[in-house]
Every structure is written in structure tokens, then in C-alpha cells.
């Protein structure tokens, strides 16, 4: 058996305040996608992105609209930035738009605008999908530890 001697152990008083994360409602995020493939697909996808931006402006929806082209470096560049990648002009590109608005109907309006490209957008857009998801924003604060009583609840839904 080995015996160890440990010396100099120190401690501090438990902190009076604990770190907590608070969340509050932050509107609704709309996300929508539509694909273009084949001859001239990149130009058609870019045009779709421009059309959406313009129509969202005409609708008067305030807030930042992000437009990306999946297949053209979407995780590195938005449509407004020039991609540093070599992109084939034919191929398989998917336009993705996203924006956060205060009201659910506004996010839905943006999504509906992308879906309308089926009937009034560049040729042969397909595979449209749209989602509206409630958002919360978070912040860190310190709370007095007395108001916290640790417990665990498990709910089987």
C-alpha cells in the first residue's frame, strides 16, 4: 500500500452569487431554400437571390436578410460577398435565405416569397423548403445564491 501526504490544501468561501443564463423571446426566424441544377445553374441561383432581396424590400420587411448559395461556399460567403472559390457555372446550387423578424407572420411572408419562385422565378427552381422557428436570445447574469434551490425534474412526455 502506498501512502500519500498532501499538504497546503486551501479553499474559498462559496460565492455569494451564481452565474445564470436568462432567455427571452427574440422573434421568429424564417429559413427557406430552393435548388437550381444543370445549364447555367449558378447564374439562375444568383438571380433568385437578387429577386428575393428585392421583393422582401418591396414588402417592407425590416431587418437583415441573409442570402447564401449552398454549393458556392455558403458557409464562408453570403451572396453579396465574392467567393474565392472556383465555381462551375453549371452544376448544383441551392439558394438559402434567412432572417429574424418580430412576428411569426413576417417570417412566414419571407418564406412564402421564396416558395413563389416556383411560379415566378428563374427557370427550373425545385426542392423548395421553408421553416419558421421561434427564437430566444440569451444573456448571462449573476443571481444571489439564496434564491436558487437546486432540484431535478424529469418529465416523460
Amino acid at each position: 500500500m502506498i501512502q500519500l501526504l498532501v499538504k497546503g490544501g486551501k479553499g474559498k468561501k462559496a460565492p455569494q452569487k451564481l452565474k445564470a443564463t436568462i432567455c427571452c423571446d427574440n422573434g421568429f426566424m424564417g429559413e427557406a431554400e430552393i435548388s437550381y441544377a444543370g445549364p447555367n445553374a449558378l447564374a439562375r441561383a444568383k438571380l433568385a437571390g437578387e429577386v428575393i432581396s428585392e421583393r422582401i424590400q418591396i414588402l417592407g420587411l425590416q431587418g437583415q436578410l441573409r442570402v447564401e448559395i449552398i454549393g458556392a461556399g455558403s458557409v464562408h460567403f453570403s451572396i453579396d460577398e465574392s467567393s474565392s472559390y472556383e465555381l462551375p457555372k453549371d452544376g448544383d446550387y441551392r439558394v438559402r435565405t434567412s432572417a429574424i423578424y418580430p412576428k411569426r407572420y413576417q417570417a412566414q411572408q419571407m418564406v412564402d416569397e421564396v416558395m413563389s419562385l416556383y411560379c415566378c422565378g428563374p427557370a427550373a427552381g425545385g426542392g423548395g423548403r421553408g421553416y419558421v422557428t421561434p427564437q430566444s436570445s440569451t444573456a448571462s447574469i449573476l443571481v444571489n445564491r439564496e434564491i436558487v434551490s437546486p432540484n431535478v425534474q424529469v418529465k416523460i412526455l
Binding site: Y36, A37, G38, P39, Y118, A124, G126
Partner: peptide
């Protein structure tokens, strides 16, 4: 199960 369930992009495929 396809992404393009309507086959709207198939027109481009035929053209190509």
C-alpha cells in the same frame, strides 16, 4: 424521398 419532390428541376436535366 427526394429533395425535389415535384421534379421541377427535371426540365433543366432534359435540356442538359
Amino acid at each position: 424521398l427526394r429533395l425535389d419532390r415535384h421534379g421541377k428541376t427535371l426540365s433543366s436535366y432534359l435540356l442538359h
